Amino acid sequence: MNKGFLPGETFLDRSKVLAEQGPRLRELLAALPARLNELLARAVAVVRARFGGKISYASLPFEGVDWTPFDCISTDAGYRYAQVADRFPELIRAFVARGRALGKLVAITEFGCATYRGAADAGPRGGDVIAWDEATATPLGLKGEHARDEAEQASTLRELLEIFDAEGVDAAFAHVFAAYVLPHDPDEPRKDLDLASTGVVRVRKDGTWEPKEAFSMLAGHCGRRSSTSARS
């Protein structure tokens, strides 16, 4: 998301670079860890001079982060999309084991699901059903027809949280509370951009919001965890 690590002036430009295959991408990714870890080491030093809490970095698998200066290892790879669904618990277990071996806390800093039927299989690419105006970076509408399915979104988040709990993850952050650029349109399904949103609330055109099923599920799950902690 930051300029300077990958070619491209905009996030969309840099995303296209990551979608490439071949020697150029391999060369770019090979050079990334050293440059990234140099920046992170300097950033941690600045943060620790001003902040007394735990520090982490929401990483992506290809970044090769050196976790030495951090208190917690973290990944945004908390999506159980179709290609990894059968081994997803194993992947989470391995990430937790890595953190424990380093003596660090473990966090999943991004997990979620869009709000249409079949979005769970798409995982982080659930938003690909949106057609974008590349010049203005604004959504134009939905590609094709998609059925709203708040129950699938809620059940997917619940199942992911159960996996994280079972594998010993210390903290997990749902993506995202609200997607304000993807408003809900109850009258025109093809313009109901909220279907592509991982937000746990629906954003109205006036900017206000109302909870989805996932919001209530998360509230209940967190409430149970708090009660269990208090009793124990």
Rank of each mutant, 00 (worst) to 15 (best):
residue 169 V to A: 07
residue 129 V to A: 04
residue 119 A to R: 01
residue 133 D to V: 12
residue 129 V to K: 02
residue 150 E to I: 01
residue 166 A to M: 08
residue 140 L to C: 10
residue 159 E to A: 14
residue 115 T to M: 11
residue 149 D to F: 07
residue 135 A to L: 14
residue 172 A to F: 03
residue 131 A to V: 15
residue 146 H to M: 07
residue 162 E to M: 06
residue 110 E to N: 09
residue 143 K to T: 12
residue 161 L to I: 14
residue 134 E to C: 09
residue 141 G to A: 02
residue 163 I to V: 15
residue 167 E to T: 09
residue 162 E to N: 03
residue 131 A to F: 10
residue 163 I to N: 00
residue 141 G to E: 00
residue 145 E to R: 15
residue 109 T to Q: 08
residue 167 E to L: 08
residue 127 G to S: 13
residue 115 T to S: 15
residue 116 Y to V: 04
residue 156 T to L: 08
residue 105 L to W: 04
residue 136 T to F: 07
residue 118 G to K: 11
residue 119 A to P: 03
residue 148 R to A: 15
residue 128 D to A: 14
residue 112 G to E: 00
residue 154 A to S: 08
residue 112 G to D: 00
residue 173 F to S: 09
residue 151 A to Y: 06
residue 116 Y to S: 03
residue 133 D to T: 10
residue 107 A to L: 04
residue 130 I to R: 01
residue 113 C to R: 10
residue 117 R to Y: 06
residue 148 R to W: 09
residue 104 K to Q: 11
residue 118 G to W: 04
residue 104 K to G: 04
residue 154 A to M: 07
residue 126 G to P: 06
residue 116 Y to I: 03
residue 147 A to R: 14
residue 112 G to M: 02
residue 107 A to G: 08
residue 168 G to S: 05
residue 132 W to Y: 13
residue 121 D to Y: 08
residue 111 F to S: 07
residue 164 F to Y: 15
residue 106 V to K: 03
residue 168 G to W: 07
residue 145 E to W: 05
residue 143 K to F: 07
residue 153 Q to F: 07
residue 159 E to S: 13
residue 156 T to C: 14
residue 108 I to K: 00
residue 116 Y to R: 01
residue 137 A to F: 12
residue 165 D to Y: 11
residue 125 R to H: 13
residue 157 L to F: 05
residue 154 A to H: 02
residue 129 V to E: 01
residue 137 A to N: 15
residue 158 R to T: 04
residue 143 K to S: 12
residue 111 F to T: 10
residue 174 A to L: 03
residue 169 V to I: 13
residue 113 C to P: 04
residue 159 E to D: 14
residue 152 E to I: 07
residue 107 A to I: 02
residue 149 D to H: 10
residue 128 D to T: 12
residue 146 H to P: 06
residue 174 A to M: 05
residue 137 A to P: 00
residue 110 E to D: 11
residue 166 A to R: 11
residue 104 K to R: 10
residue 163 I to P: 00
residue 146 H to R: 13
residue 137 A to M: 14
residue 129 V to F: 05
residue 158 R to V: 06
residue 105 L to F: 07
residue 139 P to Q: 10
residue 150 E to W: 01
residue 129 V to T: 09
residue 122 A to Q: 13
residue 157 L to N: 04
residue 125 R to V: 00
residue 145 E to M: 12
residue 121 D to R: 15
residue 147 A to L: 14
residue 137 A to R: 13
residue 166 A to H: 09
residue 111 F to G: 06
